[in-house]
Design a protein around this nucleic acid. Structure first.
Length: 274
DNA sequence: CCCCTCACCTGATCGC
DNA sequence: TGCGATCAGGTGAGGG
C-alpha cells in the first residue's frame, strides 16, 4: 500500500471525468498537491482517501484499469488520465487510468459517513458510491438481511445478483458461475427461492469469488490484467460462462447461451430449471 | 419504491 | 479486403 503521495495530473479525454461534479471544484485543482493516505474499494468503485477529506474515486466501468507504471514509461493504449505521484520510498511513479470503452471514469468526491453491515460500524465512502452494498467477502456483510431482501424481490434471480444495491462484487461472469454452481435458473423469480436455496446460492457466490480472487481474476485477453499487468487464470475454471455448446461439467447436457438484460446468460438447461 | 429498457463507447471477430 | 452484425467483466437515467 502507498504511504504519502503527492499528485500531478494529465487529462487525455474529458469524458473520463464524467463522474466528477465540477460544482465542488475543478478535478485537477482538488487533486494537485494533495496526499493519498490509503486505498479502498467496493464493487467496481475504487477510491483513494486524500488528506483534504475528499477521495480520488475511480469507477472501472466495463473496461477500466488503473495501472502502475514507471514515470517515463511509454503511454498505454487507451490512456485517458495520467497521475504523476511521488512515493516516499519508490520515488516518481505514473498511475495510468486506461479505459477502452470510456464507461468508467475518475472523480474527486467527498467522503460521507455510512452505517452498513452487521457490525454497524460507520465507514467513510465517496458520496457517489454510498448506494453500493458490501460485497459478500466483507466480514460485516449481513447474510440474514441480504437473504431477506433477495427473497422479497419479484425480479429474476440474476437481476437481483447484479443489483449492486443488494450485493456488490458480482458481474455477469460470476453471476452465471454462481447460478450454475447452485443449480438455479437465471430467470427464476428471486421471491420463489426457498430459504435453503438462497443460503446455498450465497455460499456458492462466496466460493466462486474466493476462487476467482485466488486465481487473479478472469482474463480473456491481454486487456484484463492487474495493476502490474499480470493476467488472471480463472477463465480456466469457468463452468458456465462462455461454455455454450460444450457439455455441462456436472451432467453432460449441452450448455446454452441466451440473451438476458442485453447480455449473455449461460446455463445448463437440465441442471438449472426455471 | 419497484421494475424494465436503453443509452453510453470502442474495438475484435465472424459470416457473407 | 470490406462491410455489417454482434459481442464484450456495468451502470444509471427515465419511463411505466
Amino acid at each position: 500500500m502507498w504511504e504519502r503521495t503527492s499528485i500531478r495530473f494529465r487529462l487525455f479525454n474529458p469524458r473520463s471525468l464524467k463522474r466528477h461534479d465540477a460544482r465542488r471544484g475543478d478535478f485537477a485543482g482538488l487533486l494537485i498537491g494533495s496526499t493519498v493516505v490509503s486505498a479502498e474499494r467496493r464493487g467496481k468503485f475504487m477510491w483513494f482517501p486524500l488528506d483534504t477529506g475528499d477521495a480520488l474515486v475511480t469507477h472501472l466501468g466495463m473496461s477500466g484499469q488503473v495501472l502502475l507504471r514507471a514515470s517515463d514509461a511509454a503511454a498505454d493504449r487507451h490512456l485517458r488520465i495520467q497521475l504523476h505521484v511521488t512515493h516516499p520510498e519508490h520515488g516518481e511513479l505514473a498511475i495510468n487510468f486506461v479505459d477502452q470503452r470510456i464507461f468508467g471514469s475518475m472523480a474527486v468526491d467527498e467522503l460521507v459517513h455510512q452505517s452498513v453491515g452487521a457490525d454497524a460500524q460507520p465507514r467513510l465512502v465517496p458520496s457517489q458510491a454510498a448506494h453500493i452494498a458490501l460485497d459478500p467477502l466483507d466480514a460485516a456483510f449481513d447474510d440474514e438481511a441480504f437473504i431477506a431482501k433477495l427473497r422479497s424481490r419479484s425480479v429474476g434471480i440474476k437481476r437481483a445478483l447484479l443489483d449492486q444495491n443488494l450485493i456488490s462484487g458480482i458481474g455477469n461472469i460470476y453471476a452465471d458461475e454462481s447460478l450454475w454452481a447452485a443449480r438455479v435458473h437465471f430467470d427464476k423469480p428471486a421471491d420463489s427461492l426457498s430459504r435453503i436455496k438462497a443460503v446455498e446460492l450465497l455460499s456458492e457466490v462466496r466460493s466462486v469469488l474466493t476462487k476467482a480472487l485466488a486465481e487473479g481474476g478472469t482474463s480473456f485477453d491481454a486487456q484484463y490484467v492487474n495493476v502490474n499487468g499480470a493476467s488472471g487464470y480463472f477463465s480456466q475454471s469457468l463452468n458456465a460462462y462462455g461454455q455454450q455448446g460444450k457439455p455441462c461439467p456436472r451432467c453432460g447436457s449441452e450448455m446454452k447461451r441466451v440473451t438476458f438484460m442485453n447480455r449473455g446468460s449461460h446455463f445448463c438447461p437440465r441442471c438449472q430449471r426455471r
